[in-house]
Each structure stands twice: as structure tokens, then as C-alpha cells.
Simulated assay, not measured.
Amino acid sequence: MRTPMMRSRTCPDLLAPLLAFLFSSIFAVADPTDRLRAELENAHKASGAPGMAAATFDTKTILAQTQLGVRRADKKGDVEAGDLWHIGSDGKAITATLIARLVESGKLTWNTSLKEIFHDSVGNLHPQAQQITIQQLLSHTAGLPANPPDDLINEAHEAGDRNIRKQRMKIAMDALTKAPLSTPGTTFLYSNTGYIIAGAVIEELLGTTWEKAIAKEVFSPLGIKSAGFGAPSGSQPRGHQLSDDGSRQAVEVGYAGDNPAIYGPAGGMHLSLADWVVFLQDQMLGHQGKGRLLEKESYRKLHQPILNNYAMGWLAGKGGKVLQHDGSNTYWYATVTLHLDTGRGSVAVANDAGPKTGAAMHRAMARALQE
């Protein structure tokens, strides 16, 4: 508002352009795309990552999306808006959502035990492992090791995606014939093994691969078409690793540039930023009873913290009102945050997982979401 003092001390000929400048400056600072771009530039510079992309969104639309840098450090080619990004363990929430659909369809419950799922092999399972429940698998409270043994990982690398169901079942049986590292349900132990076994559960119940099941049950209903498995191929961004001299070296595509295919349910997928946002918007809409994949109570079940502020596929802060997760296969980095009370979220990705990348992206996205 202009006061009498302002009118008496300001030349009328200068007032209009002055106000125009002030208003344009205010809107420039407040513009979400400009803010996001500025913060991502800071993160890009601080991390040294070859390329980055980020988006902020609400339940209806993408508020801002931007990208910068190059697809690979050793060749020309800028990052583009529709590029594909490996999201690592951020995919655990997608696997957990598929499990929730199976719960709703009556194929299992959250308290179904692995004894009930793998009944044909139950004689080989350790007595404590038999009692591990679906909820414990997805909340990292099953007492399972972080990863399968090195010899089985090496064997899986050589096998690629051949006989993938048999490979995952072999991982499951190896883990479940041994005593859990802690009594199931009592301790938080982050476990990729648990999510690989969750994939084997899905395959046992549906008689198909986790890859086909996730495409049919999650991606297709949401209209997600860019999703794939392993590291992106073709002219898409490449993941990078640090060489001894500190430079970034592009890695291979597919499973040659990723963990072996058995890790898919734990974090072995890629997709475009816009398609990832579609899934995340559905997670937020679910709390309003407007999700397309699940009933309202199923979303809330997935997002309710159990131990160590971990829910099922999500780190859940503020009693489940803020969901967060990071993902990396050591060549890529991805981070997501959802504010369920305000219906706003952010994602950021990089084709690098250097020592400064994650922290730089966290700072950038926290600032980009500030009002």
C-alpha cells in the first residue's frame, strides 16, 4: 500500500517503473521454477555430479521441473526433461505398494507368515524364519541381513535376468534356512535381502516375475510408460563412479551398470522424473481417499512408522506426515520427500553418487520447498 509520505516523497514519473521493478522482483524470487533452478545449480556445483534433475509438485501438478549438466562426463549431450533416472532404493515404496494391492485382493495379509507363503519348502526353513511376516519384511524388522552373501551376488551377476524367479527363490531359501540376526519384529535392520524375498513372495503368489507384476499392478494403472529395470540404456544418462584421480567415469547400461537383477524389488528400476511424480502424487492422494491404486487405509498402513521411524518402503517422520527416502546403487543418487499434510513433494536425481551428492541435493530440495 502506498502511504501519503510515499506519495509526497516520490516523483510521480518514477513511481510506476519503481513499482513495476519491485513487483517483478518479488515474483521472480517467488517463482518455483526459478527457485528450483537456483537451488539445483548450487547442488550441482557443490557435488561435482555430471548431471542432475529435480521437480517439486503437489497432488495435481508438477509445480517446477528443471535439469542441468550432461548425460555422461566423457561425451557431449545435455540432460533433458524426459530423461530416465535410476532411483535405487526409492523403488522399495513401489514394491510395498504392490504388496498392499495383494493384501486388498485377499491373497495375503500383513501378518501372513513366510511359512504360509513358502509352504512347499517349509521343512527347510529355520523355525524363527518361518514366522517372519510380510509387514516385517517390508519394515526391515525381520532380522534379515543387509544383502545376500557375496558368492550368490556374483552368481546373480553372471546370470543376469535369466531364470530370475529361481534366482530370487534361491536367495530367499539361503536367507530363511538360517537363524535371523535378531528376533523378528524386535529390531530395525535395513535389509535389501528382505525386499528381494518380498519379490519372491509376489512371484510365488502371482506365478510371474516381479518385473511383470509391478508393470501390470502399479505402472499400467497409473499410465507410467517409461519405467524399466537396471540402468537406462541408449542415449540416456549414464551412472558414474569416481576414479582414483577424482574424475567421473561413466559406467555400463542395463545390469552391467547396476546391482544384479535379483535386486529389482529392493531398488533396481529407472523411469522419467514426470512418471515418478505420478506414482508419488498417488501416494499423497491416497491419504485423501483419492488414490488410484489402493484404499485409503492401505496407504496409511504403508506410511505408518513401525520401528526406527521406518514404515513400509518409507522413512516416516512426524508420525507419518512426512515421508522420505534416498536411493543409490553407488552410480546414481535419488531422493524424495512427501509432505502429506500440505500435499507437496520434491524429487531430485543425479547420475552420480559421489561423497557430496546426497547432502547437496537434500539442502537444495529443502530450500526449494520453502514458502
Rank of each mutant, 00 (worst) to 15 (best):
K178S: 13
K178R: 15
K178G: 11
L181Y: 09
L181C: 02
L181Q: 15
L181E: 14
S182F: 02
T183W: 00
P184Y: 01
P184V: 12
T186E: 09
T186P: 00
T187V: 05
T187K: 13
F188G: 01
Y190M: 11
Y190C: 06
Y190W: 04
S191R: 07
S191P: 03
S191W: 08
N192S: 03
I197T: 02
A198E: 13
A198T: 14
A200F: 09
V201C: 02
V201L: 02
V201S: 02
I202G: 01
I202M: 05
I202Q: 01
I202S: 02
I202P: 03
E204I: 01
E204Q: 06
L205C: 02
L206V: 05
L206G: 00
L206S: 01
L206D: 04
T209P: 07
T209V: 10
W210L: 06
W210P: 06
W210S: 06
E211Q: 15
E211D: 14
K212T: 06
A213G: 08
A213L: 12
I214M: 11
A215Q: 15
K216V: 11
K216A: 15
K216T: 15
V218R: 02
V218M: 03
V218I: 15
F219L: 13
F219D: 10
F219C: 10
S220V: 04
S220N: 13
G223I: 15
I224M: 10
K225W: 00
S226W: 06
A227S: 10
F229M: 06
F229L: 07
F229W: 14
F229I: 12
F229G: 04
F229E: 03
G230R: 06
G230N: 07
A231R: 10
P232R: 14
P232S: 09
P232E: 07
S233D: 14
G234A: 09
Q236V: 08
Q236M: 12
P237I: 10
P237F: 01
R238Q: 12
R238S: 13
G239P: 07
G239R: 07
H240M: 03
H240P: 11
H240W: 09
L242W: 03
S243A: 15
S243C: 01
D244L: 13
D244H: 04
D245F: 00
D245L: 03
G246P: 05
G246D: 02
G246M: 01
Q249N: 10
Q249E: 13
A250P: 14
V251P: 02
V251Y: 00
V253P: 00
V253N: 09
V253R: 15
G254K: 08
A256Q: 13
A256C: 03
G257Y: 04
D258T: 14
D258A: 15
D258Q: 14
N259K: 14
N259V: 10
P260F: 06
P260C: 08
I262Y: 04
I262K: 05
Y263Q: 11
G264K: 13
P265M: 08
P265E: 04
P265S: 06
A266Y: 08
G267Q: 08
G268Q: 12
M269E: 08
M269A: 10
H270Y: 15
H270V: 13
L271I: 09
L271Y: 07
S272N: 13
S272K: 11
S272F: 04
